[in-house]
Protein backbone atom coordinates (compact mmCIF):
# COMPACT_ATOMS: atom_id res chain seq x y z
CA UNK A 1 0.00 0.00 0.00
CA UNK A 2 1.61 3.27 -1.08
CA UNK A 3 2.16 5.76 1.71
CA UNK A 4 1.52 9.46 1.73
CA UNK A 5 5.22 10.18 1.37
CA UNK A 6 5.05 8.67 -2.12
CA UNK A 7 2.52 11.28 -3.08
CA UNK A 8 3.48 14.35 -1.14
CA UNK A 9 7.22 14.63 -1.74
CA UNK A 10 8.87 17.66 -0.16
CA UNK A 11 9.54 19.25 -3.54
CA UNK A 12 5.82 18.97 -4.38
CA UNK A 13 4.82 20.65 -1.15
CA UNK A 14 7.40 23.34 -1.82
CA UNK A 15 5.94 24.17 -5.23
CA UNK A 16 2.46 24.05 -3.71
CA UNK A 17 3.38 26.50 -0.96
CA UNK A 18 5.34 28.83 -3.21
CA UNK A 19 4.13 28.35 -6.76
CA UNK A 20 6.36 29.67 -9.57
CA UNK A 21 5.14 31.80 -12.45
CA UNK A 22 1.77 32.65 -10.94
CA UNK A 23 -0.53 35.02 -12.77
CA UNK A 24 -1.71 35.69 -16.27
CA UNK A 25 0.06 37.17 -19.28
CA UNK A 26 -1.61 39.82 -21.32
CA UNK A 27 -3.67 38.46 -24.21
CA UNK A 28 -2.86 39.08 -26.98
CA UNK A 29 -0.01 38.58 -27.61
CA UNK A 30 -0.24 35.67 -25.14
CA UNK A 31 -2.56 32.71 -25.69
CA UNK A 32 -4.88 31.84 -22.83
CA UNK A 33 -6.30 28.36 -22.21
CA UNK A 34 -8.47 27.04 -19.41
CA UNK A 35 -8.48 23.48 -18.17
CA UNK A 36 -11.09 21.85 -15.94
CA UNK A 37 -10.93 18.86 -13.68
CA UNK A 38 -14.50 17.56 -13.67
CA UNK A 39 -13.81 15.47 -10.59
CA UNK A 40 -13.21 18.34 -8.23
CA UNK A 41 -14.26 21.41 -10.17
CA UNK A 42 -10.74 22.76 -10.21
CA UNK A 43 -9.85 25.15 -12.92
CA UNK A 44 -6.44 26.05 -14.25
CA UNK A 45 -5.56 28.93 -16.54
CA UNK A 46 -2.37 28.74 -18.57
CA UNK A 47 -1.22 31.75 -20.53
CA UNK A 48 1.76 31.35 -22.84
CA UNK A 49 3.75 33.67 -24.99
CA UNK A 50 5.25 31.90 -28.00
CA UNK A 51 7.78 33.81 -30.07
CA UNK A 52 9.75 32.39 -32.98
CA UNK A 53 9.14 28.84 -31.90
CA UNK A 54 10.17 29.54 -28.32
CA UNK A 55 7.94 29.45 -25.26
CA UNK A 56 9.17 32.84 -24.11
CA UNK A 57 6.91 33.14 -21.09
CA UNK A 58 4.26 31.19 -19.20
CA UNK A 59 2.00 31.96 -16.29
CA UNK A 60 -0.36 29.82 -14.28
CA UNK A 61 -3.58 30.93 -12.63
CA UNK A 62 -6.59 29.17 -11.14
CA UNK A 63 -7.03 26.98 -8.14
CA UNK A 64 -6.42 23.38 -7.37
CA UNK A 65 -5.14 20.80 -4.98
CA UNK A 66 -1.51 20.44 -4.03
CA UNK A 67 -0.89 17.94 -6.82
CA UNK A 68 -2.40 20.00 -9.62
CA UNK A 69 -0.88 23.23 -8.37
CA UNK A 70 2.60 21.86 -7.86
CA UNK A 71 2.51 20.01 -11.16
CA UNK A 72 1.57 23.25 -12.91
CA UNK A 73 4.25 25.18 -11.07
CA UNK A 74 6.98 22.66 -11.89
CA UNK A 75 5.77 22.50 -15.46
CA UNK A 76 5.98 26.25 -15.85
CA UNK A 77 9.52 26.28 -14.51
CA UNK A 78 10.52 23.40 -16.77
CA UNK A 79 9.17 24.71 -20.06
CA UNK A 80 9.82 28.41 -19.73
CA UNK A 81 12.39 29.50 -22.31
CA UNK A 82 12.33 26.13 -24.05
CA UNK A 83 11.53 25.70 -27.72
CA UNK A 84 8.01 24.60 -28.54
CA UNK A 85 9.42 21.30 -29.77
CA UNK A 86 11.22 20.73 -26.48
CA UNK A 87 8.10 21.63 -24.55
CA UNK A 88 6.08 19.14 -26.56
CA UNK A 89 8.68 16.46 -25.88
CA UNK A 90 8.47 17.18 -22.19
CA UNK A 91 4.70 17.00 -22.26
CA UNK A 92 4.94 13.63 -23.99
CA UNK A 93 7.48 12.36 -21.46
CA UNK A 94 5.50 13.60 -18.49
CA UNK A 95 2.26 12.17 -19.78
CA UNK A 96 4.11 8.97 -20.55
CA UNK A 97 5.01 8.74 -16.88
CA UNK A 98 1.32 9.09 -16.05
CA UNK A 99 -0.41 7.74 -19.12
CA UNK A 100 -0.41 4.01 -18.59
CA UNK A 101 -2.75 4.75 -15.79
CA UNK A 102 -4.54 7.74 -17.17
CA UNK A 103 -5.57 5.81 -20.25
CA UNK A 104 -7.35 3.25 -18.11
CA UNK A 105 -9.31 5.86 -16.23
CA UNK A 106 -12.65 7.25 -17.23
CA UNK A 107 -12.66 11.01 -17.25
CA UNK A 108 -12.86 12.36 -13.76
CA UNK A 109 -13.11 9.08 -11.95
CA UNK A 110 -11.12 6.02 -11.15
CA UNK A 111 -11.30 2.85 -9.23
CA UNK A 112 -8.03 2.34 -7.47
CA UNK A 113 -8.86 -1.26 -6.78
CA UNK A 114 -8.93 -2.37 -10.39
CA UNK A 115 -5.85 -0.66 -11.71
CA UNK A 116 -2.64 -2.57 -11.68
CA UNK A 117 0.49 -0.87 -10.65
CA UNK A 118 2.71 -0.76 -13.66
CA UNK A 119 6.13 0.79 -13.72
CA UNK A 120 6.39 3.26 -16.55
CA UNK A 121 8.55 1.77 -19.26
CA UNK A 122 10.73 3.42 -21.82
CA UNK A 123 10.24 6.79 -20.22
CA UNK A 124 13.30 8.90 -19.72
CA UNK A 125 12.57 9.86 -16.14
CA UNK A 126 15.90 11.68 -15.89
CA UNK A 127 14.75 14.11 -18.55
CA UNK A 128 12.03 15.19 -16.17
CA UNK A 129 14.31 16.55 -13.48
CA UNK A 130 12.40 17.50 -10.37
CA UNK A 131 9.16 16.62 -12.16
CA UNK A 132 10.07 13.02 -11.49
CA UNK A 133 8.89 13.69 -7.95
CA UNK A 134 5.36 13.45 -9.31
CA UNK A 135 5.96 9.84 -10.25
CA UNK A 136 4.42 8.74 -6.97
CA UNK A 137 1.08 10.06 -8.15
CA UNK A 138 0.61 7.03 -10.39
CA UNK A 139 0.10 4.99 -7.25
CA UNK A 140 -2.95 7.12 -6.49
CA UNK A 141 -4.92 6.74 -9.72
CA UNK A 142 -7.67 9.22 -8.91
CA UNK A 143 -5.04 11.92 -8.55
CA UNK A 144 -3.50 11.42 -12.00
CA UNK A 145 -6.00 13.81 -13.54
CA UNK A 146 -4.84 16.41 -11.03
CA UNK A 147 -1.22 16.00 -12.13
CA UNK A 148 -1.94 16.03 -15.87
CA UNK A 149 -4.45 18.89 -15.89
CA UNK A 150 -1.94 21.67 -16.49
CA UNK A 151 -0.02 19.62 -19.07
CA UNK A 152 -3.11 18.94 -21.15
CA UNK A 153 -3.96 22.61 -20.89
CA UNK A 154 -0.48 23.62 -22.01
CA UNK A 155 -0.64 21.20 -24.96
CA UNK A 156 -3.87 22.81 -26.02
CA UNK A 157 -2.30 26.24 -25.67
CA UNK A 158 0.64 25.24 -27.88
CA UNK A 159 -1.81 24.00 -30.51
CA UNK A 160 -3.68 27.26 -30.40
CA UNK A 161 -0.48 29.29 -30.58
CA UNK A 162 0.53 27.30 -33.66
CA UNK A 163 -2.74 27.92 -35.45
CA UNK A 164 -4.27 31.17 -34.24
CA UNK A 165 -8.02 31.30 -34.69
Amino acid sequence: MPGLEDLYREIILDHYRSPRNRGELETPPAVRVEGFNPLCGDEIVVTIDVQDGVLADIKIAGTGCSISQSSASMMSAAVKGKSVAEARDLIATFKGMMSIHEATLPSGAGDAGTIEETEPEAIDIDALGELAALQGVVKFPVRIKCATLSWNTLAQGLDEAASPV
Binding site: L4, L7, T63, C65, S66, I67, Q69, F140, C146
Partner: peptide, 11 residues
Protein backbone atom coordinates in the same frame (compact mmCIF):
# COMPACT_ATOMS: atom_id res chain seq x y z
CA UNK B 1 -7.67 21.74 -0.73
CA UNK B 2 -10.55 19.27 -0.27
CA UNK B 3 -8.72 16.70 -2.42
CA UNK B 4 -5.75 16.87 -0.14
CA UNK B 5 -7.92 16.68 2.97
CA UNK B 6 -9.63 13.61 1.65
CA UNK B 7 -6.30 12.01 0.72
CA UNK B 8 -4.81 12.52 4.17
CA UNK B 9 -8.01 11.41 5.88
CA UNK B 10 -7.91 8.20 3.87
CA UNK B 11 -4.64 7.33 5.60
Amino acid sequence: HPHDISQILDQ
